Amino acid sequence: MIDLGPHAVFILWAYLGVAMTVAALVGWTLHDARSTARRLAELEARAPRRAAR
């Protein structure tokens, strides 16, 4: 393994924290995108259709 010096534990925890934060943000973004798409589909299904010009 790479020698990270006396601060190895801090460095590894910092990388783990960043990875967990990025994973949480990606997960939240995917969840929000799906719920937004679902809500948009519901609104489009309820909206009256407009006549084409």
Rank of each mutant, 00 (worst) to 15 (best):
E44C: 11
A14G: 01
P48A: 07
Y15L: 10
A51T: 15
L30D: 00
I11W: 08
A33Q: 13
V22R: 14
A47S: 11
H31T: 09
Y15I: 06
V9G: 12
R34H: 13
H7P: 01
L43A: 10
L30N: 01
A14H: 01
D32S: 12
A19V: 04
G17A: 09
Y15H: 02
T21V: 12
A52P: 02
L16H: 04
L25M: 14
R53N: 07
R46N: 06
R50M: 03
G5I: 08
T36F: 02
L4I: 02
M1Y: 06
A14W: 00
V18E: 01
W13R: 15
A37R: 13
H7G: 04
I2D: 13
I2Q: 13
P6L: 08
P48D: 08
R46G: 04
L30S: 03
S35N: 05
P6I: 06
L43C: 05
F10R: 12
V22K: 13
L12N: 14
L25I: 14
A52M: 03
V22Q: 11
V18K: 03
G5T: 09
M20H: 00
A41F: 01
G17R: 07
T29A: 06
I2Y: 11
L43D: 10
A19R: 04
V26W: 04
R53S: 08
R46L: 09
I2M: 10
R39P: 00
G5C: 09
R38V: 04
G17V: 06
A45C: 02
D32K: 14
T21G: 14
H31N: 10
W28S: 14
H31M: 06
E44N: 13
A52C: 03
L12R: 15
A37W: 09
L12T: 15
M1E: 10
D3L: 07
A41M: 04
M1W: 08
A8E: 15
A8G: 10
I2P: 14
L40C: 04
P48Y: 01
L25K: 08
D3T: 07
